[in-house]
Simulated scan of single mutants.
Amino acid sequence: MTLDFSVVTGAWQSLLLGTVGTLFLAFSGMALAMIIGVLGVVILRMQLRLPSLLVNAFIEIVRNTPFLVQIFFLFFALPLAGIRLNPTLTAILALGVNGGAYAIEIIRGGVESVPKGQTEAGLALGLHKHEVFRLIVLKPALRAIYPSLSSQFILLTLTTAICTSISAYELTSVGQRIEAETFRSFEVYFTLTGIYLVISLVTMWLLAAIGRRAFSYPQR
């Protein structure tokens, strides 16, 4: 067997567009996951029985079922409910739902790590509960959980490869098309592995730089 990487070098534009598609899915899915995560924590902190039960049920269902099953469920169940989304929007929704369940647990752990004395001090200063949560609780909590959220984002980026199962446009779907046209499986998937590795390493470096700038303590 002779290796022929010209099949992937000749398709570099398609691979570049696929990489952009993967990053779009990842960033959009993580943005939705963060919204779900913050809202979920707010609901849990309200300590209302039924809403808290629903949030906890959501967490357990999502965390204990495969992502592939979740994305198929949304892809086939939403049209039955009269909601028709294209594969890309369905993939973003599935990524957001999956990441949101983990984000709730991560953010809740960070919020609970903030000493209650800080909350009481904020209330004593006359701040509203929402201001206390946003200014005194949430930012210190985000500083504590930022590494975990960064790791979750990397994982979500790699999970986008599964979105090819519903024909969402991303890097793996492009690779599958090239492989189907050329029958050069090793060259295609070896290249995809390298691209995903570069994406992960560059993203980790960027997130670490953002974390140092956004959550560093002021210098005296």
Rank of each mutant, 00 (worst) to 15 (best):
T2Y: 12
I154R: 09
V41I: 12
T160I: 01
A209I: 07
Q47R: 15
G18K: 12
G194S: 05
L156T: 06
L80G: 00
S173R: 15
E112K: 05
A94I: 08
I36E: 04
A161W: 11
F183V: 11
A94S: 15
R108W: 02
F76M: 08
E112G: 04
A208D: 15
L78A: 08
L3W: 12
P66M: 13
V114A: 06
P115W: 07
E105G: 02
F5T: 11
R84C: 00
Q152I: 03
I83Y: 04
T65E: 04
T172Y: 04
T22H: 05
F153I: 11
H130S: 14
T172K: 00
Q219M: 08
K129Q: 05
V8K: 04
L192Y: 03
T203Y: 08
G40W: 00
R220E: 03
H130Y: 10
L15S: 13
M34H: 06
E187K: 04
V42N: 03
V42C: 10
W12Q: 12
L54I: 14
L16F: 15
V114R: 01
T191P: 08
G122C: 12
A121S: 10
E60I: 07
L74M: 12
L93C: 00
H128W: 00
I83R: 04
R134F: 15
I154T: 06
N64W: 04
L171I: 12
T160L: 01
E187W: 00
I104V: 04
A209W: 09
F215T: 06
G18V: 07
L74Q: 08
S151F: 00
Y146V: 10
L125F: 14
G37A: 11
L44Y: 01
R63L: 12
R45N: 03
L149V: 06
P218Q: 10
A57S: 07
H130R: 13
G211K: 03
G99S: 07
P147Q: 07
R212F: 09
E105M: 01
L17E: 11
F183S: 10
L16V: 14
E120G: 09
I36K: 03
R84F: 02
H128A: 05
E179A: 15
T88W: 04
L25P: 02
N64R: 14
R220I: 00
